[in-house]
Design a protein around this nucleic acid. Structure first.
Lengths: 342, 342
DNA sequence: CGCAAGTGAGAAATCGGTTTCTCGCCGAGA
DNA sequence: TCTCGGCGAGAAACCGATTTCTCACTTGCG
């Protein structure tokens, strides 16, 4: 595969150097000591013939690829991009490469794609926010070693790296309530999304902690278009008393922000808007978008740490949840007519 | 690798079914006709044992991986993300997977990374906007089959898929001149970037076509931070008479836009701003950003078409350049005091 | 000086499949 | 009835490395 000269093999090198293939292999891997004379001859032959060992053949012998796969629903999602980046860079430091498998949001193909991808690699990273939990559990067992991203899977010893959306939403609500808001709205994500369910739990918990606060739900989505589409409903909610809106994620928030401006709604003067994920563009929005920051590349790095342990035969590493950090920017402020008390 | 049961091989299946490994292989691949009885027995055994053939072993025999690699300087760049998406989806349709190799902008490692990535795969996609041309030419020969993205390489029969930045800039200048602007500024990209060089050629050609127009260059960069950083210089240029700014890309333009707003500059009232690439967020900026749209995923798809031809041993496919399409939005308008004539 | 231990290099087995080779068996035509 | 062609299945070679096995040759110590 990797050889440009259409196939110079280890035997070719051996013949050319007048030694056995085994010796060439020894020189290459330096496991045992070999006669300096042979080393020199072999190295010369390698250089002359332009030999590069076949990684496939090596993989066959060693039973591993030094490759891992990452299955994602949509490569265009900034969250997964960040994770991929972090994973790919960390893995590279250990000589591993990452293969991507975009399921194009087709939940039905997800299982097959994951299995196929797994066959090519030593391990798998699974980002499957939409896959029903039962299916996911079955799948996870089949494709071990595997690390799951952003899905709680109680009672399964699969390492998970995720974001504490529940806590994140609570913190975000706290921020808004602290500013003086009492009537909020949450623009929901895709119904089947696991992380949307988490966020809804966050909303519930926040309500429990702030009995005087009300949070309405507005059906939304996960992309900027959804944010634009929901702007009308948001304006209505605003008329009904809502003073702050939390969007499922930043993409939705950014779409919403753009449309609100066109509708003449002043953010944050009339209405506060917050997103989630802190995508790179959030801080360049108008107004700069308040968001909950999640360490995308750090998550990717942590995924790699766990994957590496599993590949090495180590015990299942612990699950880890990152608590999002509030990035308070311009899009959230005290509601009209409320003095900020400090 | 892919087998969960720690290695059930084709021989195990053969033994269990009471036939030869060769027959199992025949059943699996269906090349020649086999006794229906054997087929049934083999399939039963496969199901019972939960057998899955080793793709590595297959690769060794066939001499190919059904995997291609894509080398990118930075996975966080929306352009490369789009290309990766398009490539990955198209390749998947033909049973190929894509391996990513992020060089983290380290030009010096690019060559080694590319070669290593190539060894694992059947072919390579090279995105190397900063690699010096001489090095790139050498590299391209070593890693064939390869498709190059966004780099002109005259007199080398390597298929290239790219964007016609020269033409794009010319069209963008035309747009601004058409609006009435006569004094523009171009915020440059990274000095070593090949596509920045192309854009500069576009600037030159535009100047040649519009003798009365003046275009100043302002050293910039490729990220939003660079756009913010350059805002001061842009304001100065504005004072000196510049009425429209073209940024190296959308990221820079968006950063610039955010900072200009803070500086109290009205866009497009006082100053028009345009970007390049039409990243997803461009249309949600404030004001919605005028940009030159490049078909990111389509480029990825075209890369795959060419790669597939090369892998199949076909003749080097033709190079293709996409002409960016103007997406005129709110961030560009006629300069103050100029009536738009139509 | 002789024998055991140590060293290093080639031969051969192995990884897990595919593909070619070979041969037995069948039916058809002479 | 004999032979030739065709077909199908097992045996064996092969893909390109690594690793174990084997053995000749040193070396060291008694």
């Amino acid at each position: 595969m990797g050889e440009r000269s259409r196939g110079v093999t280890i035997s070719d090198v051996a013949t050319h150097a007048g030694v056995s293939p085994a010796s060439v292999s020894r020189v290459l891997n330096g496991r045992t000591s070999v006669d300096p004379d042979i080393v020199r001859k072999v190295q010369a032959s390698i250089a002359t013939l332009g030999y590069a060992p076949s990684l496939v053949a090596r993989s066959l012998v060693h039973g591993r690829n030094t490759t891992v796969a990452m299955v994602v629903p949509d490569l265009e999602n900034p969250l997964f991009q960040g994770i991929l980046k972090g994973l790919s860079v960390s893995a590279a430091a250990d000589g591993y490469r990452v293969l991507v498998a975009d399921t194009a949001e087709r939940v039905d193909d997800e299982e097959a794609i994951a299995i196929e991808a797994r066959q090519r690699c030593d391990a798998l990273v699974l980002c499957a926010p939409r896959l029903p939990e039962a299916k996911l559990r079955r799948l996870v067992e089949r494709v071990a070693p595997v690390v799951v991203v952003n899905r709680p899977l109680p009672d399964l010893d699969v390492p998970i790296v995720g974001v504490d959306y529940v806590r994140g939403i609570r913190d975000l609500v706290d921020h808004l309530v602290g500013l003086g808001h009492r009537h909020l709205a949450y623009v929901t994500g895709p119904e089947t999304s696991a992380s949307n369910a988490e966020r809804l739990r966050g909303v519930d918990e926040a309500l429990a902690m702030h009995p005087s606060v009300r949070i309405d739900c507005i059906p939304g989505g996960s992309r900027p278009e959804d944010g634009e589409a929901v702007a009308g409903a948001v304006v209505e909610a605003h008329r009904a008393g809502v003073t702050a809106v939390i969007a499922f994620n930043d993409l939705v928030a950014l779409g919403l922000l753009a449309r609100l401006r066109e509708l003449g709604v002043d953010v944050p003067g009339e209405l506060s808007v917050a997103g989630f994920d802190d995508v790179p563009m959030a801080r360049y929005a108008t107004p700069r978008l308040t968001s909950m920051s999640v360490p995308r590349t750090e998550i990717g790095a942590q995924v790699w740490v766990r994957l590496r342990t599993l590949i090495g035969g180590g015990p299942a590493p612990h699950t880890v949840l990152y608590r999002p950090r509030l990035e308070a920017r311009e899009s959230t402020a005290a509601p009209a007519g409320v003095e900020v008390s400090t």
